[in-house]
Amino acid sequence: MIMGLFNDWVVVVLMMIGLYIIIAHGNLIKKIVGLTIFQTSVFIFYISMAKIDGGTAPILVDGVTQYSNPLPHVLILTAIVVGIATTAVALALIVRIKEAYGTIEEEEIQEQDSQHKDSHKLNIHNSSEINRDKKEC
């Protein structure tokens, strides 16, 4: 039983670590790294379930009858792509947050937001606005 479920338990541990980083750490980039660990642990879970004793990679070769299950592989290929897509968008957001707030620490951002929660003045951050400011200078 220990060997049979070892992979699943490691997956759970990795998942817990990833989730912990996402929730407990305040640095936005670190959160994204945590997200990557979290997602990768799910990939490991799927791939482990596709494994079959005495099987080989699912590429048809003469003389082999036992192949591991190709379907989870396909799903995880898709999921990896989804993962990188999310990471890219998240990183783009981080760059913009750094520009707008001057920091990428969760606490400092929330502090800045709560300071002028009631001011209705917009906190402009668009690049075009920056360009306009520059022209005025």
């Binding site: 099987g55 591991s68 290929l77």
Partner: peptide
């Protein structure tokens, strides 16, 4: 685990592109 296609993709994405993008972002933040 016999998932060669997935391994290929993870190597190019997990170790390649996403590391690169994060490094670029770190230089800015």
């Amino acid at each position: 685990m016999d998932a060669v296609d997935v391994a290929f993709t993870e190597a190019s994405v997990g170790a390649g592109i996403s590391t690169l993008l994060m490094l670029v972002v770190i230089t800015m933040t």
